[in-house]
Design a protein around this nucleic acid. Structure first.
Length: 427
RNA sequence: GCGUCGAUGGUAGAGUGGUCAAAUACGACACGCUGUAAACGUGUUGCCUUCGGGCUUCGGGGGUUCGAAUCCCUCUCGACGCA
């Protein structure tokens, strides 16, 4: 994997670049739609490409449970398995430590609505018997499968092994995503854990790379650079095995000192790039991202994990993030929400039943061929095509937005574009 | 014509003397969703309200009762059976 910065923002940390992976080039900033279970829900790879996307993020935890990483490896890796020849990233399962742990069955999620999270009761203390599917242990995390209740223990080593089996181009270190409602002491403790896990993830990654390297030495093609830039080719059932790049993850909650400490520590390790993680109060996010990106090595790519609303994308780019992934475009699409240049709409609303104009004046397949009334009808009729058409539109909208943001950096008018877009989008 | 059974909110369908403005489901309406426990979830769904409550509802009409969706009479409509 190689990363090259083409142009930097004059007043900000933002930059436009190119990320080279074994499965293709990504112009950054870029948006990475999510295909958790090796599928962009409701969308085929062809439709995905047609919507302008060129990279997808899948999930370690979900694929480990079903169908199993061994099976994916047997199928020839994720690319072959899911018929997607572009770049793939896999999340480490770190987010599930949070979403199936403290956040399980609670109001808290990736973004909290609370203005001051410190006013919230720490979730760990208010009901210790609260059911949760993830429990953090000394060495790793035990998960109770949401599919069949079976118990699985995931360590950093295990997560990296699974990810190597899945065979993505970019993989992530195993981390603990914390809730902003946690107190400082817990944040410190969790950060220490995430840092130890980062080192262990890196060690396991390097161990697997070197064992692959020696095992495959006769037939591999060395492309130069660090271990993370190896390309291994062979003619076995695992043809085109690509050694993945590993991204380390910065945590630290909403605490400036912890965020900076994390950026310094993770930034000093031999990762190929970085993920910025955590559950945020919306107001805290830009500060945290800025603190971190001012410290991280400039020449490596930074991925803002799980963020993807239009206003957040501008914020992330401005503050130095190169990659974004988010379930929002596809999830809200399936639930009837569509992005338009004038803000989000709920296409199921009664007012769209008789609206025969297009959803937005965008160039996506859905907008070019269907009316609001039709998509509205598909949703009310519970037709599967509703999810497909809505997902295509939302993917196009967000992916294209980030492309336009990138172009605005190259054209030296990022701030003008940002202001104009958000003025109309946020009304 | 005789007999039997039935008629409940937008729909289906519980309820069978008070705890019933009436379960539940669907529908409708609105909202939420940010490294996907998510084709999901939440709220509202007779009328009015100063949110305390008030008012009119269970095919129509009449009655019994302190009190009726629930019991009785009658009418209307429907299903089935017998003529």
């Amino acid at each position: 994997m190689k990363f090259k910065i083409e142009k930097k923002l004059k007043n900000g940390l933002g930059r436009a670049g190119v990320l080279n992976t074994a499965h293709g080039e990504i112009n950054t900033p870029a948006f990475v739609p999510v295909g958790t279970k090796a599928s962009i829900k409701a969308v085929t790879p062809e439709q995905f490409i047609d919507a302008g996307a060129n990279i997808v993020l899948a999930n370690t935890y979900h694929l480990y449970l079903q169908p199993g990483d061994e099976l994916v490896a047997k199928a020839g890796g994720l690319h072959k398995f899911m018929n997607w020849q572009g770049p793939i990233m896999t999340d480490s399962g770190g987010f599930q430590v949070f979403s199936l742990g403290v956040a399980y069955g609670k109001e808290i999620s990736k973004i909290t609505k609370i203005t001051d999270p410190s006013l919230m009761i720490p979730e760990r203390f208010d009901d210790s018997d609260a059911p949760r599917l993830a429990k953090i242990g000394q060495d790793g995390v035990s998960f109770k499968s949401h599919l069949d209740g079976s118990i699985h223990y995931i360590t950093p080593e295990k997560s990296i092994q699974i990810q190597h089996n899945l065979g993505a181009d970019i993989i992530f270190a195993f981390d603990e995503c914390t809730s902003p409602t946690e107190d400082l002491r817990y944040q410190e403790e969790a950060l220490e854990r995430t840092h130890r896990w980062a080192e262990r993830s890196l060690e396991e990654h390097q161990r697997l790379l070197s064992s692959n390297f020696s095992a495959l030495r006769p037939s591999l093609e060395y492309k130069g650079g660090t271990l993370g830039q190896l390309k291994i080719e062979r003619n076995s059932t695992l043809e085109n095995v690509v050694s993945p790049a590993l991204f380390g993850i910065i945590q630290g909650g909403r605490e400036e000192s912890l965020r900076k400490k994390s950026a310094r520590f993770i930034g000093s390790l031999a990762f190929d790039g970085f993920g910025i993680g955590g559950s945020f109060a919306k107001e805290d996010m830009s500060k945290a991202v800025k603190w971190v990106n001012e410290i991280l090595p400039e020449e490596k790519p930074r991925h803002l994990l799980g963020i993807g609303e239009p206003e957040d994308l501008f914020m992330g780019v401005e503050n130095g993030c190169d990659l974004f992934d988010c379930v929002a475009p596809t999830r809200i699409a399936r639930n009837g929400s569509l992005y338009t240049k004038n803000g989000k709409i709920n296409i199921m609303n009664a007012k769209y039943r008789n609206n025969f104009s297009r959803i937005d004046d965008c160039e996506c397949y859905t907008c070019k061929n269907y009316t609001c009334a039709y998509v509205c009808h598909l949703f009310h009729g519970k037709e599967m095509l509703a999810a497909t058409l809505a997902s295509i539109h939302n993917i196009y909208f967000i992916v294209n937005l980030v492309k336009r943001i990138r172009q605005s950096i190259l054209d030296d008018n990022f701030f003008i574009f940002k202001e104009e877009f958000l003025k109309q989008y946020l009304n």
